[in-house]
Write a protein that binds this DNA or RNA. Structure first.
Lengths: 225, 225
DNA sequence: CCTCAATAATGAGTATTTTCATAATGTAAA
DNA sequence: TTTACATTATGAAAATACTCATTATTGAGG
């Protein structure tokens, strides 16, 4: 997953890059309008973090550029709350989300994941990976064209990992995804082991592979292989 | 719950008023800056729906006014997506949420409920109603100073009804609140009967009243009485 | 390589959530 | 009033989710 960080404030840019790289994203940086435009001309990104605080309203300019070109890159706007004069036209210009500084990196991470996931589903009603086919509308999963029944939690979890293929997912992140806001209610994440075990069993029983690779001290990665 | 609708487009204003009144809110209308300001000077509202499309940026002006006066009314901004020149400074100015036209009334309804709920919790860690005391941090409920154990779903449901005291809640709305996004996965809402039954029993066993009044064809209302 | 401590997997038990069949109740029409 | 029909209540059973104790695996440091 490729992310473009458009941010002039160097310390923030560096934290973002470090954090997101650790999260498994491939980051590219642009510290001003020109570099950003140049990179945007060359590549598409899964998600663009755009600081509207670039001088001279250049942030909005970039957003307009993307819109004109019918680009489908996900965009998350970052802006300062105290810059009252800063115009936030962004959402009308098609940005996917916004964040007001200061924000927690984990919050950013969640939004990026959500934007990427939303985009990867856009218009689709099936999500396929090798012999696994997830029917998003019918909430049904087929493995090798055979319906395999997964419980709701299993379904959510499997889909979550599939949409984050080859990306290490911490247990905490997975639990937050299952539990949503109530995640803080959980005092132990142990039940994730049970769910993973059950999903693995169902997949293997259906003649598929164990795509879940456990990452010691972190969580799991759903791998190609 | 009092809502102020600041909207100049008459047909939209009327739909909002009709719908929200049916939802049990008390609506007040303002079709321009002057009327809005006048009403705001007289009353506080639980939620203000503010169309930023008022001529001459008057919408933002109202928002600044509220901010200056340290008003705590909830504010949801409504704005048109295609009005590219419209400046959406709103979020920096302390609005609680925004909606881009056109939107579904049910979506608006959900946001209003969420804004009102959030505000009613602001800074509190207890939510009390007669002899029922909900410890929001400790996720614990006391009835007549005795701890009564509710399961997670029961807890959420009871709290939801308590925060919507005297307001009819449809089963669909309650289920959506329990299930979140997965609500569409539900093909039957029957389990709500069981949950309500169990909550009622626990409350009555603890010496409290049955505050749940069932509304035929709709759902339930948590009443004062 | 071993050893050790930390983390993960597993199986079985417990609790919660949901479904289902049935009974009770409310509403409107005959 | 009845009657018919739809909605809600209830108890019990089934499915699901979570916990816990035990065993296995991992990776760091000797």
């Amino acid at each position: 997953m490729k992310i473009l960080i458009i941010e002039d404030e160097e310390s923030l840019q560096r934290s973002l890059d470090t954090y997101l790289t650790a999260e498994g994203y491939t980051c590219s940086n642009a510290k001003n309008y020109d570099i950003a435009k140049q990179k945007l001309a060359l590549y598409e990104y899964d998600c663009i973090l755009l600081d509207l605080g670039l001088p001279g309203g250049e942030g909005l300019e970039l957003l307009r550029f993307l819109k004109e070109k019918d680009r489908t890159d996900g965009v998350i706007i970052i802006s300062a709350r105290n810059s009252l004069d800063q115009k936030i036209e962004g959402l009308s210009l098609g940005a996917d989300d916004y964040l007001i500084k200061p924000f927690h990196l984990s919050e950013l991470n969640a939004r990026i994941a959500s934007v990427i996931r939303r985009r990867s589903f856009e218009g689709k009603d099936h999500f396929t990976f090798n012999e696994i086919d997830v029917d998003l509308k019918g909430k049904q999963i087929k493995v090798k064209d055979q319906i395999v029944y997964f419980t709701k939690k299993e379904f959510d979890l499997l889909l979550y990992f599939m949409t984050n293929k080859n990306k290490a997912i911490s247990k905490a992140a997975a639990v937050e995804h299952i539990w949503g806001d109530d995640a803080d209610m959980a005092d132990s994440f142990d039940f994730i082991y049970t769910h993973i075990k059950n999903i693995r069993k169902k997949l293997i029983d259906a003649g598929s592979n164990d795509y879940f690779q456990s990452i010691y001290g972190v969580g799991y990665k759903f791998v190609d292989q």
